[in-house]
Design a protein around this nucleic acid. Sequence first.
DNA 1: TATTGTTATACTCTATAACTATA
DNA 2: TATAGTTATAGAGTATAACAATA
Lengths: 146, 146
Amino acid sequence: MNDVKLTSTLVFRLGTLGATVSERFSARLAAHGLKPKHVGLLAVLESGVVASQLDIAKLMNVAPSLVVSLADQLEEQGAVRRERDPHDRRRQVLTLTAEGRELLAVCTEAAVELDAELADVLTPKEAGMLRTALLALARHNGLPAD
Amino acid sequence: MNDVKLTSTLVFRLGTLGATVSERFSARLAAHGLKPKHVGLLAVLESGVVASQLDIAKLMNVAPSLVVSLADQLEEQGAVRRERDPHDRRRQVLTLTAEGRELLAVCTEAAVELDAELADVLTPKEAGMLRTALLALARHNGLPAD
DNA sequence: TATTGTTATACTCTATAACTATA
DNA sequence: TATAGTTATAGAGTATAACAATA
């Protein structure tokens, strides 16, 4: 028979650690009036691969209506600019402002700090292999791999 | 300056992978009428470390009222038994039934299958180190480490 | 007609607060 | 008066569906 414990599976560990880490990250973003999805949207814009709201929704795997409200809030903070595409006036093209770029840098710094706290309990070799393995998993699961 | 990309941080990778994996696990549990938290509760009971609803809530880091509804549904499925502690009739003691044990085994098997799919894109060495690193992270973040 | 974005609405998950019973 | 559990209510986050503008 199979005596593997649920709690020792990758599924359980990735699921619970992901939730814990996201919550800690979210707590740090709160000071900037942002949620993780806002920062995800900023990162999409910085990557430059897409700009229309519908394309962003597909890339982020969220509903188009969610992109509307995320963009609304980011625009209000001056982090993104919304402009109609002159070639197709149905499309709203979002671009990062200088402020948005700065905001993304600040949030990335917060993530890097949290990374350091996490990696602190790992040996350098473990930390390196963790990064390698997570990159491979991201690549094969439709997540950003850069 | 710092040119680390948000998407390459542990925070981002653990957060997004955790959400993706949880969703895939959840989809497989649906056939059994369960959500990940139900299975988490079954795993707590199997571990035998606690049994009263309040202790379970603390261990799972959820509100006591959530344990009530999780236990309600599991009891209705015949997976757990609720009995008043004769020494303190305020306490509800939850125990796994044979059916509950079987259900947990089935769900664990689903997790193990998903694990295999995930690990399929890793070298054996990477997979081993991933497990080691996640165990260390779990241990230092108040998550089950057995 | 089809597509992009928006608005209105509803659903899922979970917490907080009020309540009951036991101690 | 304090604690375990329950019920009632509310909030966050997000999706679905109806709608408006443009193609």
